[in-house]
């Protein structure tokens, strides 16, 4: 049962929306509850958290099938890890080494992008690089997957926007 819920069908937009709404509302609740404890948080920080919650909800609904959702989830997980690091504020050598490794990874990725662009038979390099920047995890995709992922991402984003709009309407009216 739970495994099935981990990988819902994103083919059906209604189901997608429902799942997303559920998760998102729950995340909102948790955010709100946290806010009760830490009272006057700043506005933009709160909105950012809501946004992140929305993206997480969407990505978790889509699951690990899509590379963009995988990238989002990975990023968020890493983000929380980084936050923990910041909270501790203890930068040991080990962490530094880790950071260095990350930087190296980044460099390597950049190189791979260049190769991709070079190998890319289509010469829409400017637009494609733009698209790559926009879609999460797009940097490591080949131009093959890119189209597919973009299509899926657009679908999910549209659903997300709709749900959020309805939520906003609901809350503002009541």
């Amino acid at each position: 049962m739970s495994s099935a819920s981990q990988q819902p069908t994103s083919i059906n937009p209604i189901h997608l929306k429902n799942q997303f709404a559920l998760r998102f509302v729950r995340a909102l609740n948790t955010i709100k509850n946290q806010k009760g404890s830490a009272h006057d948080t700043q506005m933009h920080c709160r909105s950012r958290r809501v946004k992140i919650a929305a993206y997480t909800a969407m990505a978790s609904v889509v699951g690990s099938r899509r590379s963009w959702s995988r990238a989002v989830l990975w990023k968020i997980r890493n983000r929380s890890r980084n936050q923990d690091l910041l909270r501790n504020k203890i930068m040991t050598n080990h962490h530094r080494r880790r950071r260095h490794a990350k930087l190296c990874m980044k460099r390597r990725n950049r190189n791979s992008i260049r190769e991709d662009v070079y190998l890319n038979p289509f010469r829409y390099s400017v637009q494609e690089s733009k698209l790559r920047k926009m879609v999460p995890g797009g940097r490591n995709m080949d131009s093959w997957c890119l189209g597919d992922e973009i299509a899926d991402y657009i679908k999910c984003l549209a659903a997300q926007v709709e749900v959020m709009q309805t939520l906003v309407d609901l809350y503002t009216v009541t």
């Binding site: 909102l28 506005m43 933009h44 809501v50 929305a54």
Partner: peptide
């Protein structure tokens, strides 16, 4: 929308 939700919350 997330901003709006944050204000509304």
């Amino acid at each position: 929308l997330s901003m709006k939700l944050a204000t509304v919350n």
